[in-house]
């Protein structure tokens, strides 16, 4: 069966490559847009606990909505194709990034912040020199969670005509062709694992040396 999938892949290299590129483009741009929006928003929210309560609760609810439901909701609003898929994936990626950016800043040792302010750092300097670097590991953990979710979630783009590797799965099911289905499923699984590993390394690289566990 794997061989059949392999054979199909070899006979349709362009089809596979296009699907892969679409999948990665969707996931990558969805994640990037989400990070660009949610990291600053999370940091901003950490400065105002009251607004944060609202936003974080909303994000938490957003987190529990299944990916497929997000896509389904997009359908009547934006129709089908690449753009609605991108919007849906962005929405999918925002909650974990937002929550971690908020939590990351909030959990910075208040004594470190107090001594920074007490020594004459401006609010901006405290953010840039203390809070952000200390929160960076937590923020990037949020991005990692979102990345894995998005890579897996991009599969569902196939349902609203967004393309990507999910196409193989949907047509595999429709045509009762298991090899075709595998051609989508296996790369997606590998992509998810690869994303997890890649972002894990990134997270470690972004963790300041003095805060890494297991190094002393």
């Amino acid at each position: 069966m794997i061989q059949a999938a392999w054979a199909y892949l070899l006979s349709h290299p362009k089809l596979f490559r296009d699907a892969l590129v679409t999948h990665l483009t969707l996931s990558g741009s969805g994640l990037a847009i989400a990070a660009i929006l949610a990291v600053p928003l999370g940091i901003l929210l950490s400065q105002s606990p009251r607004a944060a309560l609202l936003a974080i609760n909303a994000a938490n609810i957003g987190r529990t909505v299944p990916s497929l439901a997000v896509l389904a909701i997009m359908l009547p609003v934006l129709g089908t194709g690449f753009l609605p898929s991108l919007v849906a994936l962005t929405l999918l990626a925002i909650p974990p990034i937002l929550i971690n950016a908020y939590v990351g800043i909030r959990q910075v040792d208040p004594d470190a912040v107090e001594s920074a302010v007490g020594m004459g750092m401006t609010r901006l300097q405290v953010m840039a020199k203390i809070e952000l670097p200390v929160a960076l590991p937590v923020i990037s953990a949020g991005v990692r969670t979102a990345a894995v979710q998005v890579v897996a979630g991009a599969t569902l783009a196939a349902f609203i005509g967004g393309g990507g590797l999910g196409d193989f799965i949907t047509s595999g099911i429709a045509l009762m062709q298991l090899p075709l289905l595998l051609l989508g499923a296996v790369p997606i699984a590998l992509l998810a694992i690869g994303t997890e590993l890649l972002f894990h390394r990134l997270e470690r690289a972004l963790t300041p040396r003095g805060m890494r566990s297991g190094s002393s």
Partner: peptide, 16 residues
């Protein structure tokens, strides 16, 4: 504050 050295009770070193 830059003209006042400040030692806080909980030390508050920057961990990173």
């Amino acid at each position: 504050r830059r003209r006042m050295g400040y030692v806080i009770q909980q030390i508050g070193l920057f961990p990173h």
